[in-house]
Design a protein around this nucleic acid. Structure first.
Lengths: 126, 126
DNA sequence: TAACGATATGCATGGCACTCCATATCGCTA
DNA sequence: TAGCGATATGGAGTGCCATGCATATCGTTA
């Protein structure tokens, strides 16, 4: 019925996403994987971490598998059986990865902020 | 059969993606939409642009619709009927948008480059 | 050695995005 | 004024991927 009610300028928002991958891009490490690793560190098991993050164990396991595949080294020391049926702890490499990732994230947030302000200013010149 | 053939450090790559959206995030403008707009500018019609980019006319039309909805103003002046059955040309606003986006993209590339080098260096300390 | 709880993994299914298809509308041109 | 070709838009069909389900495996503990 009424198509153009009035061309009104609206507020727009910039979104961004960064992730690691192997050369082909079929293996990837997303932000969710970092959160998973952190949660494993807190909870002590993959299962508990998955529950805490409200994702399926299946997915959590798969994400972790892929991350280790991409990097080429282990992030988690996993134990089957035992006192509590099993457990998972981070490797030193995983701790370093988390640190490095946090720093990267921070740097990004800063430059994104600046770049977007400029962009917005340019748009408003229209 | 053979799971851990040898934990070998591998090369990893940083990927990123930026996009605009409205407040709720249900309306989005992706890189593909900018490419579409550029192609419309070259080809002179939405249909030809969609074909050139090998996407369905349906999707192209929808993406454009969404982009204009997010921004709140027209990007394309579309004509139905006429000499060639119809045509599409960019509005001045669309040209400005493309310019601003390219600048943003460039800025991003630069900061990604820097941030990733640092990240990589940190990883190699492992 | 039976039980328990976490890791490990294949497979069915459901949701979603995109493509295909069908149809309507528009306005110049011959 | 009939025809053409592009825009406009809904709906069915399809393919992919995440999720969930089911089940096997493992090793300590009681």
């Amino acid at each position: 019925m009424d198509k153009p009610p009035k061309p009104t300028r609206k507020d727009v928002f910039l979104n961004y996403k960064i992730w690691l991958s192997n050369l082909t891009g079929d293996g990837q490490i997303h932000d969710s994987t970092y959160r998973l690793i952190e949660m494993i560190s807190q909870k002590g098991s993959l299962k508990a971490a998955a529950q805490a993050l409200k994702i399926s164990y299946r997915k959590a396991w798969g994400d972790l598998e892929q991350a280790e595949e991409v990097l080429g080294y282990q992030l988690i020391e996993k134990q089957r059986g035992g006192k509590d049926g099993g457990a998972s702890v981070l490797t030193p490499a995983a701790h370093k990865l988390l640190e490095a990732y946090k720093a990267l994230q921070q740097k990004f947030d800063d430059s994104v902020e600046k770049a977007f302000e400029e962009f917005r200013a340019n748009l408003n010149k229209i």
